[in-house]
């Protein structure tokens, strides 16, 4: 199986502070990498480098065979990012937001694809309402539609369950289950239960380095014990 994501000696510095200190890992096509770690460990920075929102300070990062520094445009066509920030224009309607992103990604069947996603995410009835009037859960569902509108091969998830009510969590998980086989995933999370449930590969980042790596199938209690060793703050189970 070819590697969809390849990271070799990734370093990133903000000012004098080195946030990533030589991360190396790979993820096969169709894999699901769950990344855990304490706040400030470098999880989100890693995800933002994969998403081309940050440039690597040193090292090599390839997504779908393209270098994120040298060849960012094809990487951007390949990825979708779902974050706890929905990246939606609050004064536009759901339809206007999706049309905007559809045009930006050059989606050929834009309107049909928007209809399909709004139906799938149970938002059709609110498509002409401005996003400002949406609940947090509805915004997050619309953010999922935004992220998968252009049919990306790789989905990057940054705390996707954060702040969602149980109903919204169910809808998000249902959608992830539906599209699980079509994508490669990297998920940054504090939610151990979700990370273990979805991950085919598990990783703990601590202080900019990989502190633990394991394939899926690890005993949850054993993982929690390892996790607690590395994370001082309370975990979310």
């Amino acid at each position: 199986m070819p590697l969809e994501i390849e990271v070799e000696g990734l370093r990133k510095t903000f000012g004098r502070r080195e946030v990533l200190k030589g991360l190396s890992f790979g993820l096969e096509r169709g894999g699901f990498l769950s990344i855990f770690g304490p706040n400030g460990a470098g999880k989100t920075t890693t995800l933002r480098v994969l998403a081309t929102l940050l440039t690597p300070g040193a090292g090599k990062v390839c997504v779908a065979g393209h270098d994120v520094r040298e060849d960012a445009m094809p990487v951007r066509r390949t990825i979708g990012l779902i974050s706890h920030n929905p990246m939606l224009y609050l004064d536009l309607t759901a339809q206007e937001n999706l049309r905007f992103y559809g045009d930006m990604y050059g989606v050929e069947d834009r309107d049909a694809r928007i209809d399909e996603l709004l139906d799938r995410l149970e938002l059709s009835h609110r498509r002409y309402d401005v996003v400002r009037t949406y609940s947090k859960g509805m915004r997050q569902r619309l953010a999922i539609a935004r992220a998968i509108l252009h049919r990306p091969r790789v989905l990057l998830l940054d705390e996707p369950h954060s702040g969602l009510d149980p109903r919204a969590v169910d809808i998000l998980d249902g959608l992830l289950a539906e599209i699980r086989d079509e994508h490669t995933f990297v998920m940054v999370t504090h939610n151990i239960a979700k990370g273990l449930e979805w991950g085919s590969q598990l990783m703990i980042i601590e202080n900019g380095r990989i502190a633990y790596e394991h394939a899926a199938g690890v005993d949850p209690d054993a993982f929690v014990a390892v996790y607690r060793e590395h994370v001082q703050e309370g975990s979310v189970l």
């Binding site: 081309t52 929102l53 990012l81 974050s83």
Partner: peptide, 17 residues
């Protein structure tokens, strides 16, 4: 300022533009 609400700028920069 509107691009910074809800991190819309990230959404814009993620696009292949």
């Amino acid at each position: 300022a509107q691009e910074q609400d809800e991190r819309c700028l990230d959404g814009l920069l993620l696009c292949p533009v």
